[in-house]
Amino acid sequence: MKIALVHDYLTQRGGAERVFELLCKRYPEADVFTSLYDPEQTIDLNERLVRTTFLQNIPGAAKYFRLMAPFYFPAFRSLDLQDYDLIVSSSTSFAKAVRKRPGAKHICFCHNVTRFLWDTQTYLREYGDYRYFYPLLERVFQMMRKADLAYSQEPDLYVANSSTVVRRIRQTYNKKALLVHYPINDRRFVFSEEKDDFYLASARLISYKRIDVIVEAFNWLGWPLVIMGEGPERERLEAKALRNIRFLGHVSDTERANLLARAHSVIVAALEDYGLVPVEANVSGTPVIAYGAGGVLDTQIPGKTGVFFNRQTPDALQVALLNASEIQWDYDQIRHHALNQFSEDVFFSKIERIIEETCGLHQLRI
């Protein structure tokens, strides 16, 4: 069986890219396709040949990949995938639009519905300068929504990473989806029962991650906080942070693993569709204090692996932090939960059964 692996764009390194990296490693003979590829800024594919679209030839497109939004659907439609028996797309937006030949199958790992089209106001809040062009953007987005709905019918099967995304796929695209929690590469993380006296946040420093809520809470508490990650919000956040808060920017994978293992707890204030950071913390033996909505409802057990707060406010987070400080955490149990539910072995045992059944050997029930 000839397989094509397709991702929206390989120009950054986020949770969706880490999942695609696992798929590439699992299927080393599969051909890899994407719209834009910047090997310096994304996952490590070693010497793997990555086939791109005509967008790759536009100067600066990889750096300003968000500005290419109106051209992604035509780019993916232009890919020639007629030789492939199975297409596995990894998409938050565009890769689901690829064409397949009659008789071939297309499984889409949908990390979310196309967010900037269906949650436009939140998207514009993250990129404040765009709001000035909203009237023009909205006309473009109206056309793109029609295309997104049409192309959303291309995959034979959707696989979603959380119950939140399953619901969005059904509501937006009128398609059913299988729920399979995405895994982490547990070999990249270390376990420690010894915790140091600091809390940790790991995220891109953009507005919807709500690092501002975390900073304000720790300003008030005075507890030590370490923040990993880069982004356009860094300067503003650093300006409001007191001396108990340190910003590390980008760190190596080794340093990141050590920080996750040694932190007292990992803080997540964003509404995440799924969120790999809480699972990465758990596999390191570290509890999570998270805004109790979205993907964490699938990955965390209150009082066992983490604590939820119900509003994205400093006050609510402070209460959760104080409550968590009273819990005697079982770090072994936290790690066992992550390994038992979110390991690569668990993930691929489900995925390979799905591929087998989708390709016609059994009737797949959803």
Rank of each mutant, 00 (worst) to 15 (best):
K2G: 02
V6W: 01
V6T: 06
H7N: 14
L10W: 01
A16M: 02
V19N: 02
E21L: 04
L22N: 06
L23F: 06
R26A: 04
P28N: 01
E29A: 11
F33A: 01
F33K: 00
S35P: 14
L36R: 03
Y37F: 07
Y37D: 05
P39I: 03
P39R: 06
E40H: 10
Q41T: 13
I43H: 05
I43A: 04
I43C: 08
D44F: 07
L45I: 11
V50M: 04
F54E: 07
G60D: 02
K63F: 04
P70G: 03
F71W: 12
Y72K: 09
F76T: 10
L81V: 06
L81I: 08
D83E: 12
D85W: 00
S91D: 02
S91M: 05
T92H: 15
F94W: 10
V98G: 00
A104P: 03
H106I: 00
H106L: 00
C108P: 12
C108L: 00
H111T: 07
N112D: 05
N112M: 06
V113M: 03
R115G: 08
Q121H: 09
Q121K: 13
L124P: 14
R125M: 12
R125G: 15
Y130C: 10
Y132A: 12
Y132I: 15
P135G: 00
P135W: 05
V140C: 10
M143Y: 14
A147H: 11
L149F: 09
S152L: 00
P155M: 02
D156E: 04
L157I: 13
V166D: 01
R167K: 15
R168V: 10
T172S: 08
Y173Q: 08
N174P: 10
I184N: 06
D186C: 14
R187N: 15
S192K: 02
F198T: 03
A201C: 11
K209C: 15
I211V: 15
E216R: 13
N219H: 04
L221H: 02
L221P: 08
G222H: 05
V226F: 07
M228K: 11
G231T: 07
E233P: 12
R234Q: 08
A239D: 11
L242C: 12
R243T: 09
L248S: 05
V251I: 09
T254P: 08
T254I: 14
T254L: 13
N258S: 12
A261L: 03
G275H: 03
G275V: 07
L276I: 14
V277S: 05
S284R: 11
G285I: 15
P287T: 03
V288R: 06
V288Y: 01
I289M: 03
G294N: 03
G294C: 05
V296N: 03
P302F: 02
K304C: 06
K304Q: 14
F309H: 10
Q312F: 08
T313M: 00
P314F: 02
A320Y: 05
A320W: 00
L321H: 10
L322F: 14
L322W: 12
N323H: 11
A324N: 11
I327N: 10
Q328P: 09
Y331I: 10
Q333H: 07
I334D: 00
H336T: 14
H337R: 01
H337G: 06
L339S: 02
N340W: 12
N340M: 11
Q341N: 15
Q341L: 08
S343Y: 00
S343I: 09
D345S: 15
E352C: 11
I355C: 12
C359A: 08
C359R: 02
L361H: 12
H362S: 15
H362V: 13
Q363N: 14
L364M: 13
R365N: 14
